[in-house]
Each structure stands twice: as structure tokens, then as C-alpha cells.
């Protein structure tokens, strides 16, 4: 039961992660098109994937470790 929940949560995490990335790229393009302020890239953009993927990996590792 716990493993299934883990797999489901990780699947949701990955889907939300991919959706958030697509959304970000789409918003950046759209803001350029409609003449909003130009969104520039900096380290904060790379921090998000790093932090999120790191957490996902640790959670998965711990989760499966708990109930292999």
C-alpha cells in the first residue's frame, strides 16, 4: 500500500514538475509577445530543478527504503 502510494506520488511529482517547466517556458515566451517585462534567466531558474529533483530522489530513496 505504502509503495503504491509512493509510486503514485512520485508520478504526480514528475507530472507537476514537467507541467511547471512547460508553464514557465510558455509564460516567458508569452510575456515577450505581449510586451510585458522581459524575463531574464539567472541562477534562481536552475535552483528550482535542482532543489525539486534532489528532493524527489531523496524521498524516493527513503520511501522505498522504508518499505522495499
Amino acid at each position: 500500500m505504502q509503495n503504491t502510494w509512493f509510486q503514485l506520488t512520485l508520478l504526480i511529482s514528475v507530472l507537476l514538475y514537467v507541467a511547471a517547466e512547460f508553464f514557465s517556458v510558455w509564460r516567458v515566451r508569452k510575456s515577450k509577445q505581449i510586451g510585458n517585462e522581459v524575463v531574464r534567466w539567472d541562477w534562481a531558474w536552475f535552483c528550482y530543478p535542482g532543489v525539486t529533483l534532489g528532493l524527489l530522489i531523496v524521498l524516493a530513496w527513503y520511501g522505498w527504503g522504508m518499505n522495499p
Binding site: 514538475y17 507541467a19 508553464f23 531558474w45 528550482y48 525539486t52
Partner: peptide, 10 residues
């Protein structure tokens, strides 16, 4: 705002 959405998604 984009960053806020990304972190909330996680």
C-alpha cells in the same frame, strides 16, 4: 510569479 508557481508545484 513564475518561480512561485514552480515551487508550489513541488
Amino acid at each position: 510569479k513564475i518561480q512561485m508557481v514552480r515551487y508550489l508545484a513541488a
